[in-house]
Amino acid sequence: MILVTGATSVIGQKLCQLLAENKKVFRAMCRKEDQLQKFRKQGVDAVLGKFEDPESLRSAMKGCTFLFLVSPPTENQLQCETNVIDVAKQEQISYIIKVSASDANLRSSVPWAKTHAHIDHHLRASGIAWTILKPTAFMQNFLTMTKPISKGFYPKLAVTGWWVISMRRI
C-alpha cells in the first residue's frame, strides 16, 4: 500500500486521483477532519496525520510499504520531513518518493532550497530506497499570475523571505 502525505496539496490530490482511477491501493494522509471526511466520501482510505507527530505518522504508515512525501513549505519543513523519514525507517517503509526542489543545495542562501537539500541528504542516508523528484515549476502556479502578466509584469521570487514575490517588467 502507498501512503500519500500532503494528499490535499495540488500534487497530492492529483496523485490520489490517478491512483484511484488506476485502482491502486493507497491511503491519503490529512491534517484536518473535514479533509478526512471528504476523502472517505470518495471511497478513499484516509487517516489523520501530522508531520510533527511521530505517533500519528506511525499510525498512518501501518500496512504501507511505499510513501509519497510532499509537505507544505513552512519554516519547520526540515523537521517535519525528517520526522517522516525517520518514522518510515522504523515502520519498514521500503520506498520513498519525495518531492524536492530543482535548486536544492546545502550552500544555498535560499531557505527552501537549503531545506530541501538537507532533507534529500537525510533521505539518501536513511537506507530506504528512494526517488527524489526535483521540479522546477508547476504550470498551474502561472494561473495566479495572469493579471500581472497581462499588464507586462512577470512575478519573480525574491530571496528575502520564505515566499516573497517581486515584480519585473517584461
Rank of each mutant, 00 (worst) to 15 (best):
M1L: 09
I2S: 15
L3E: 01
V4C: 01
T5D: 12
A7F: 03
T8H: 07
T8C: 04
G12A: 07
L18E: 14
L19M: 11
A20C: 08
A20T: 06
N22L: 07
K23Y: 05
K24C: 10
F26W: 04
R27T: 03
M29A: 07
M29L: 04
E33M: 09
E33L: 10
E33H: 07
D34S: 15
D34F: 14
Q37C: 13
K38E: 11
R40W: 01
G43F: 05
V44C: 05
D45N: 08
V47M: 04
L48H: 05
G49L: 00
K50T: 13
F51H: 01
P54I: 06
S56D: 01
M61Q: 04
K62W: 07
G63R: 02
C64M: 11
T65W: 04
F68H: 02
F68W: 03
L69P: 06
V70W: 02
S71E: 03
P72L: 10
N76K: 11
N76S: 09
Q77T: 13
L78Y: 11
I85W: 00
A88K: 07
K89C: 00
Q90K: 11
Q92V: 01
I96S: 04
D103K: 12
L106V: 05
S108R: 01
S109A: 06
A113M: 06
K114W: 00
K114A: 07
T115S: 06
D120S: 09
D120I: 06
H121T: 10
H121D: 13
L123P: 01
A125K: 11
S126G: 12
A129Q: 14
I132D: 08
P135R: 08
T136M: 11
T136E: 14
F138C: 01
M139Y: 11
Q140R: 12
F142Q: 10
F142V: 09
T146D: 10
G152D: 00
F153R: 08
P155M: 03
A158C: 05
V159W: 10
I165D: 06
S166V: 15
R168Q: 14
R169F: 09
R169Y: 06
I170Q: 09
